[in-house]
Design a binder for these strands. Structure first.
Lengths: 224, 224
DNA sequence: CCGTATCCAATAAGATACTG
DNA sequence: CAGTATCTTATTGGATACGG
């Protein structure tokens, strides 16, 4: 009975790994499980609660999310933290090394956006659209823009700051930006990438600057 | 009966995809299946035959390799080509878009190399070690080096050319380089990354230059 | 509300043997 | 050599029920 378990575990280990010293293969062992990388993506802009994650990863089931969080914690990519009272809630946050997956995740998104089969009409999380800004910024146009635009998605507010042709995204309190956009992430994507008119968004503050910001991005050409 | 099939297919579709417009999620749909990205990696330096791939992906089974190649072809990342007679062999090659996955693959490798659990003593393919050179080049030291070093792994020969602080890898015929290193990929890794003495390698030609080349690389610091 | 644990049906992966 | 076919095992996701 015990032997059986050991055998099974050993075989399972063998199956999970690739037996390949290549760093890319090891990356797949770290974040190659289904959903794992998307969970990490959701943590790139700051800690989230279990139910936030569940909501922003459409279709993940509670048990799989639990399992992925445990595995990511074991691998040193995520840390579980209990907020001090009275919040008394538990959050998951990326470790410093977990945060360093950002460039890789961005590179993956940029590459896949060229896919002929990419469907941009699917739902999108707030983190996703904010990260996509860093991947799709047109450096030419960005150099002619300076400002900070806030986006509110439900309770979460993010600020995108553009200066000197570069963009930085952070979670933030309201009011630190030139304008505040309140909308669904998909609507923001429709405007920034799909050519939809910006007036489908609710914008407070410097509306003109927000409109200009939303023109700084371009999707790469389709491949094939 | 028909309805049942449709339902099954639909559910299968739903399971395969993430229902997420994020480019990263789409990347996982393209290359997130087990082995898929490693198959593509093996094609980054030129076309390979089925049995080459099987040999360099230790542990992949024939049916899974077949399936991955079909899927990668369906997705536009790989093309199957029949060599003209008298070779009369079939090869798989990456499409232009497939080749563009190179930076992403390199970024993944560089990130994962910081893992405390990365085991560099595992076997390594020729393509992997050559690609690792592009990921781990120390730009400082590279600026002080110019030259082309060839590596022979079995029948396959690759050349790494360093000039102006940059490195380029290509498959090549012998004799186009300053030196030729003949070894197992793992031995080359032991020298370049593990501090092993270079005299465990068979080197013909400009030995001093080959030794200098093998000192141009550094693994990133471990995380955690 | 925030998770965790368990059970079940469906798939995907792996091992092996086999064919053109 | 280049794959198929078949069988077994592992993983996945969904439902449900349960504890803090």
């Amino acid at each position: 009975m015990k032997l059986e378990k050991i055998t099974k575990a050993a075989r399972s280990e063998a199956r999970r790994g690739y037996g390949d010293a290549c760093g890319t293969a090891h990356a797949l062992e770290l974040i190659g499980d289904r959903w794992a990388l998307l969970v990490l993506r959701e943590l790139l802009l700051g800690p989230r609660r279990f139910s936030d994650l569940r909501q922003d990863l459409p279709g993940i089931s509670a048990n799989v999310l639990t399992q992925r969080l445990v595995e990511l914690e074991d691998r040193g990519l995520v840390k579980r933290r209990r907020l001090p009272p009275p919040a008394s809630a538990q959050v998951y946050e990326a470790t410093p090394w977990g945060l360093e997956a950002g460039p890789m995740i961005r590179e993956m998104g940029r590459w896949a956006a060229r896919s002929p089969n990419h469907d941009p009409s699917l739902p999108l999380s707030g983190v996703s659209i904010m990260l996509s800004f860093t991947a799709m910024l047109d450096p030419q146009r960005a150099r002619a823009f300076t400002g900070a635009i806030a986006f509110r998605f439900g309770e979460m507010v993010y600020v995108a700051r553009v200066a000197d042709g570069a963009i930085a995204i952070a979670r933030a309190a309201e009011g630190e930006a030139d304008a505040l956009v309140t909308a669904q992430p998909t609507q923001v994507a429709a405007v920034a990438y799909g050519g939809a008119p910006a007036d489908i968004l609710t914008i407070e503050g410097d509306t003109a600057r927000a409109h200009a910001f939303l023109k700084l991005f371009t999707l790469p050409e389709k491949a094939g």
